[in-house]
Design a protein around this nucleic acid. Sequence first.
DNA 1: CGGTACTCCTGAAGGC
DNA 2: TGCCTTCAGGAGTACC
Length: 280
Amino acid sequence: MPELPEVETVCRGLQQTIERDTIIHTNVRRADLRIPFTPTLAADTQNQKVQTIRRRSKYALLDLANGKTLVIHLGMSGRVLVTEPDQPITLEKHDHFVLKFESGRHMIYTDARRFGMIFSHDTQTLNDHKLFTNIGPEPLSNHFNSDFLFKALQKRKSNIKAALLDQKLVAGIGNIYASEALYEAGIHPQRISNTITQDECASLYRSVCDVLSRAIDAGGSSLKDYKHADGNMGYFQHNFAVYGREDEQCRANCACGGKGRVQKIVQSGRSTYFCATKQV
DNA sequence: CGGTACTCCTGAAGGC
DNA sequence: TGCCTTCAGGAGTACC
């Protein structure tokens, strides 16, 4: 389930492999993923040099020499694989989009559930695209801080978990890191946003940054030897404190002393994991 | 306009 | 063993 850290890891992997390489062939293998591929996608990308690779929220952005940006969203099962130069490829059922590069490398986008998105758009006006206009600040940038978070939460009556998931408030946080950040901050996921105090906001802000940064670091170390793995980027070994650990014992360093068990509830149709002793 | 429920999709996992 | 049901979730849309 790629969230900000996983997409960041993918972008770094792409920077190490295909940045400044030139796309010599684009193979669009079906009509759509979650939304249709841009009709001009192949024409927009073929024979173009990839100048810059960057990330915004959960989107990987490949800026091309012709002023277009190739936008890639991994949805929930999307994967990106970059081969070694001249390594033969075998395309399979869920390989929906393939770029061939001058270097002889291939970039293969695989997405079994097709919740992802791939489209091209003018780089200059990408921020005006409807998928980008309402995205909140990057959590690890100067535009996001404790005060910003407090002011935003003051206006909201939804529970804090739903607020963290709302991309309009802050970009890139998904279901996993929302649970993890609330756990670390000691804030109960069912707390109503506008009851979170300024002090709690300071703690939550720190936790959001810490949880995301640690995951990015973990992704970075997994990338170092990607050549020895299969070239699949963005998925790496995680060690979550609560996510996916229903009924399992809390960690020894938990505020409950490791005596409690991780609980699971459903909020807005999404699983939330927490420790009822630590999080109040 | 804020909040919530529903929708898309397919593979994995669990029940019987 | 095999069929069926349920679950996973990012983000848009519909609706109150």
